[in-house]
């Protein structure tokens, strides 16, 4: 707790005013509107609305398309989070073994961090486009019937690959930092005791990385849930069929394309609940390591 402070009474409010104003106008007002809208039903022309209680939620949760989106989201998020973390951890362990050239590898590894998610999707689409994709041609030459624009599971594979590619950079930087923070004496002690490198990794290094891994798990899940909208929108548009329609994509699609306001709002509220749960988990975790006072 800080003992010395400035005595001004009005000044702090003036300093806070811009952030509070933006927060209230663009965060709290819309969030409240989402709650309100989620309990209203609008007629087809938007002329009248009536209160329908939880009917929108019941409708959404009973909708097979929503349950499909939920399933797609779970598969997509798990695949992206786990593969992006596993590959990044593997590469971080490799780079730690290297003496010269570390900086060179790192400089190249961070490029995708700066690429917009939507563009990450487009880059992969360029490569694997069934028409002119440079990497799609050899796949077809090998007799593989590659067409992500028509086949759901291939489309899913493509967006997972693009989303994973984009996130490896971020995870890599954190795993490298995490590995560097592990006391070298512990690993040396294990080596003296005759532990193999593999054994030392799984029994010492990996457990000590747990805070980093856990932090990344939450960040990657949030990334896969929300930030990947651009990839889905730019590459597959939720298709083919509904094979790559995630929850966020459906909120957007139902609200902006199909103009079903009440249902879109109900889905927004459900998403908010999911994010709040994730943030709560993350905060409990941060709390143990950082001071708030």
């Amino acid at each position: 707790m800080r003992r010395t402070v400035f005595p001004n009474k009005l000044l702090p409010w003036l300093l806070l005013a811009p952030q509070l104003a933006v927060t209230l106008i663009f965060f709290y007002w819309p969030a409240l509107q989402a709650f309100r809208q989620s309990m209203l039903k609008e007629d087809a022309f938007g002329l009248s609305t009536k209160f329908v209680g939880l009917a929108n939620f019941r409708k959404v949760l009973a909708d097979p398309a929503y349950l499909n989106a939920l399933k797609v989201t779970v598969v997509f998020s798990l695949a992206v989070a786990l593969s992006a973390m596993a590959i990044a951890l593997f590469l971080a362990v490799q780079v730690e073994k290297i003496r010269c050239g570390k900086g060179f590898y790192r400089t190249l590894m961070i490029w995708p961090y700066a690429v917009a998610t939507a563009i990450a999707g487009m880059l992969w689409l360029f490569l694997f486009n069934p028409g002119f994709g440079t990497l799609a041609a050899p796949m077809r030459a090998l007799g593989f019937n590659w067409n992500p624009l028509l086949k759901g599971d291939q489309a899913m594979g493509l967006v997972i690959a693009a989303a994973t590619w984009k996130q490896i950079s971020y995870n890599f930087l954190f795993f490298v930092a995490g590995l560097q923070a592990i006391p070298k004496s512990l690993i040396e002690a294990a080596a003296i005791d005759g532990a193999s490198r593999r054994h030392a990794f799984w029994t010492i290094v990996f457990p000590l990385l747990a805070p980093t891994t856990f932090f990344l798990l939450v960040v990657n899940t949030v990334y896969a849930l929300f930030d990947t909208f651009g990839i889905i929108h730019a590459v597959t548009g939720g298709g083919p069929g509904r094979a790559t329609e995630t929850l966020v994509y459906k909120v957007y699609n139902d609200g902006f394309v199909n103009l079903m306001m009440g249902e879109s709002a109900a889905q927004s509220v459900i998403l908010m609940v999911i994010v709040i749960a994730l943030t709560a988990i993350q905060f409990r975790f941060i709390e143990r390591r950082v001071h708030y006072g």
Partner: peptide, 24 residues
Amino acid sequence: ACFWLIFITLMLPVEVRIMPTYKV
């Protein structure tokens, strides 16, 4: 209270409040 008011917005990414923010 102000701190918390700001902190809670961590939980409201634009993706979850698309329509209402647009209306605003």
